[in-house]
Design a protein around this nucleic acid. Structure first.
Length: 499
RNA sequence: GGGUGCAUAGCUCAGUCGGUAGAGCAACGGCCUUUUAAGCCGUGGGUCGCAGGUUCGAUCCCUGCUGCACUCACCA
């Protein structure tokens, strides 16, 4: 191979070759193309925000990624982007020296650079760093997409969703608003912890790898533990271990962590997602409704607003959340009072409404089908739906003074989607065992999502579980709602993609 | 899993009623001392997603596959 720099950029591999040659040239000039550190005096945002103050001190040191070059011969303007912003740097040969200028000539968009310089304004009034020293901190050899912008219009945006998700780092570099969503996500999760910690809750970690899965109706991911020669599952919920901790004497406990369900991927589902569950002793689901409502108010307060556009709906958190029983809502939207209907009667209603049924379906399933089909899409503003059928709620206490077969459970619906699920937790061990045995039978009869019997969990309840209110919150959905994103993929750094 | 659509240069996109392709940006060589989608002159860059089929000839038509988007079903 010739030691000459190729004189023409060609395909991608040849562009990369040219940049590798530049690495050699940078070393020949006496510079290290991959530095170990660089002391910064400011972030670009600081300089732009407090120009007057900094201009007095005058000399600054910044570092960041080279995003644009406007080359006018002896006068050169470049844009440097760091975590919080972007600033213009002015490069002139008699300021950076002959050697520095030779280095400048070897720069490419995408390089990570450090600069010393003085802060001034150009004649158009733009805050600019007049560089006195250039330092190469990391040489880019793979070109990044060039996105240009004028008056708010973006040109040639890096917009291919597949590439954006697969190469999220590129997406973040060239589409800076992407980072804003994730920073807000991080804050929402931090505020969630604040809310619970301030209420006396203890954050804990429980097993992700479990010999028996449970706590929700879902298919698990299955794996094999060689050393134990047995099957294990990735957890589908946090419930059963957190309740063991309640039995163990932690009065207020929560976990916020990844959970896994072996189901389809779509705009609002990812196989691994972030679930928050919290349990508090000596309270019931009525208490938890207030607590959850206040949680959303707390987040609104932190975000400084109560209106959010989500899936083309304007969601208003300024009003008290509606509280309606499931039967009450069914009566409104299905058009008949089903609260005294028998299983057979419900089945008939489902058939009349054209809902396809499975053999293993029961009273609770029929109600759930009617609810999903006719009620859910209408629940746009925050609404607590109360009192679900026992048959689909194996961990909730029976409704006090209510109809048989109904439990104290609520779900919070917003924009037709479920955000929160909560029970007055079942603490009667005899009843709990019966419920899980029923689930076990369902599983044996082919319901893949029914619960497994968890003897150790039942043993814990038998030991004595205090009255407890429990809540599960789909954090990704909360983030979607509060950041105005309609796809879960836009609130996950690395959403699930096919390989 | 079903349906619809898309896949062309590093990026954003044209295009070929079937005769192996173009633009802008980026790259490469020049010019330019206040630009900011900088500008000007010049140069190169593509197995047109993959595999088959039809055809004298396929990037284009057909089939299958893969990936992505939207959507329906299931789930948070």
């Amino acid at each position: 191979m010739s030691t000459e720099t190729p004189t023409q950029g060609k395909s991608l591999t040849e562009i990369i070759d040219v940049r590798k040659e530049k690495i050699k040239k940078i070393r020949e000039l006496g510079f290290e193309p991959y530095e170990y550190n660089f002391e910064r005096s400011h972030l670009t945002k600081d300089i732009l925000d407090s120009y007057d103050e900094i201009a007095e001190k005058n000399v600054v040191r910044i570092a960041g990624r080279l995003m644009a070059i406007r080359n006018m011969g002896r006068a050169n303007f470049i844009d440097i982007q760091d975590d919080e912003g972007k600033i213009q740097v002015y490069i002139q040969e008699n300021k950076v020296g002959k050697l520095g200028f030779k280095l400048f000539k070897l720069l490419d968009i995408g390089d990570i650079l450090g600069f010393s310089g003085t802060v001034t304004k150009t004649r158009t009034g733009q805050v600019t760093i007049f560089a006195t020293e250039i330092k190469m901190l990391s040489k880019n050899i793979r070109p990044i997409p060039i996105v240009k912008e004028k008056d708010g219009d973006v040109f040639d945006a890096f917009s291919d969703k597949e590439q954006r998700y697969r190469q999220r780092y590129l997406d973040m570099i060239v589409n800076p608003s992407v980072k804003d969503v994730f920073k807000k996500r991080s804050k929402i999760i931090q505020w969630t912890r604040d809310y619970l910690n301030n209420s006396g809750y203890l954050e804990v970690e429980t097993p992700i790898l479990q010999p028996i899965y449970g706590g929700a109706n879902a298919r698990p991911f299955k794996t094999f533990y060689n050393a134990l020669n047995s099957n294990f599952y990735l957890r589908i919920a946090l419930e059963l271990y957190l309740k063991r901790l309640i039995v163990g004497g932690i009065d207020k406990v929560y976990e916020i962590s990844k959970t896994f369900r072996n189901e389809g991927v779509d705009r609002s589902h990812n196989p691994e997602f972030t679930l928050l569950e919290f349990y508090e002793t000596y309270v019931d689901y009525n208490y938890m409704m207030d607590f959850v409502e206040n949680y959303f108010r707390f987040l609104c307060e932190k975000l400084g607003k109560t209106d959010f556009m989500y899936n083309n709906h304007n969601i208003d958190f300024s009003q008290p959340f509606q509280r309606r029983s499931m039967f009450n809502l069914l009566e409104e939207y299905v058009g008949q009072d089903l609260s005294n209907s028998t299983e057979e009667e419900l089945k008939k209603v489902c058939k009349e409404k054209g809902i396809s049924l499975k053999d293993s379906d029961n009273y609770g399933n029929y109600l759930a089908y009617l609810f999903d089909e006719f009620v859910e899409p209408n629940l746009i503003q925050p609404t607590f739906v109360m009192d679900f059928p026992e048959a689909i709620s194996p961990f909730a206490k029976p409704k006090r003074g209510g109809a048989k077969g109904i439990v104290e459970r609520f779900e919070l619906f917003i924009a037709g989607q479920e955000f929160v699920n909560s029970f007055s937790e079942l603490n009667d061990p005899i009843d709990q065992r019966v419920r899980l045995e029923n689930q076990e039978r369902l599983q044996e009869s082919g319901d893949e999502e029914a619960h497994q019997m968890d003897e150790d969990f039942v043993r814990a309840v038998e030991t004595g579980m205090p009255p407890t209110g429990g809540v599960g919150v789909g954090i990704d959905r909360v983030v979607m709602l509060l950041t105005g994103q309609n796809s879960i993929r836009d609130v996950l750094f690395f959403p699930q993609m096919r390989s």
